[in-house]
Design a binder for these strands. Structure first.
Lengths: 156, 156
DNA sequence: TCCTTTTTTTACGAAATTCGAAAAAATCTT
DNA sequence: AAGATTTTTTCGAATTTCGTAAAAAAAGGA
């Protein structure tokens, strides 16, 4: 897989704003032909550089409760636990981390009740979880996949 | 804003898989006309129920280091800190939480060096941050916006 | 229930976009 | 520099999207 060039990154930046921008429009903005945009996007998709998706607003879907849960797993059980959690659709993020918690997950629920049920019934049934540290989201300030930057300048 | 019906949810489910699925194709799958899909999607977008975006693979963009950072803020400074952090493109998630940390953020970096620089130079310069607890991501198991489910059944 | 009003869906021609494939241009190799 | 390879452009055909009007369905009122 070749390194992305400036045109690739510009395509991604445009699509970050609106994932349905027509190839012709992107082509016009970047001053190249539609065919170029098309073949580039085809290549990027094939290389797994990105996917076309939608970003739903959890609130609008009735998912009023979000939580980040730090988990401690029993030695050797981490992978199994992570994979089992990944299968749950309420769980949108699962990662293994260094630090206080072996696994950190992020999940959405319709209500506090549903969250409690998740922690008490669902997590407790998963073999290998030793402890769960729940943080309830009070307010969301930012949530995006928009981490395509121009250069190597990530920090501005 | 009216509650979403089954057709709306099915549209979202299809677009979750591929955000570029043509209206004609969705219409065919759901057994309704293209016009119906079009007017529904227009309404959903206007109501802010979802957006068309792309999901880039951070690894493929050279962002090999991801971290979740729990922050403790000084009383009354939380909002300012959150808003300042939200402006940084490396930061993809910012939320206020109950629990050990006032704010939890998620960010992507090209290298450990960039992460260290972020914590030491960038965070320290933000007025109101009392402490930062960095967890380094070792492995990612799941990361998606795909939390549209059929019914109220979120936990399977 | 019947009629009216409102909303949603369908239909369909026109405009725009996407697609396939071949030619042209650019890049790479030796 | 010549040949090979990759990328870009071009262009007509197929498909999709769009605007809009009519039909159908749903909702509301008496």
């Amino acid at each position: 897989m070749k390194k992305l060039d400036q045109v690739d990154k510009q395509i991604l930046q445009i699509l970050q704003e609106d994932g349905r921008t027509p190839y012709t429009e992107i082509a016009h903005q970047l001053g190249v032909s539609e065919g170029t945009i098309r073949s580039r996007i085809t290549r990027l998709l094939q290389d797994g550089v990105f996917q076309f998706v939608i970003h739903p607003d959890p609130e609008k879907l009735g998912l009023h409760v979000q939580a980040i849960i730090g988990l401690t797993t029993r030695l050797g059980m981490q992978k199994n636990v992570a994979e089992e959690l990944s299968r749950i659709s309420a769980v949108r993020f699962v990662g293994a981390f260094s630090g206080k918690h072996d696994l950190i997950i992020q999940a959405c629920f319709h209500s506090n009740d549903e969250l409690i049920t998740f922690v008490n019934e669902r997590l407790s049934q998963i073999e290998g979880i030793a402890a769960a540290d729940v943080s309830l989201e009070l307010k969301q300030y930012k949530d995006s996949f928009s981490f395509v930057q121009d250069d190597e300048v990530t920090l501005q």
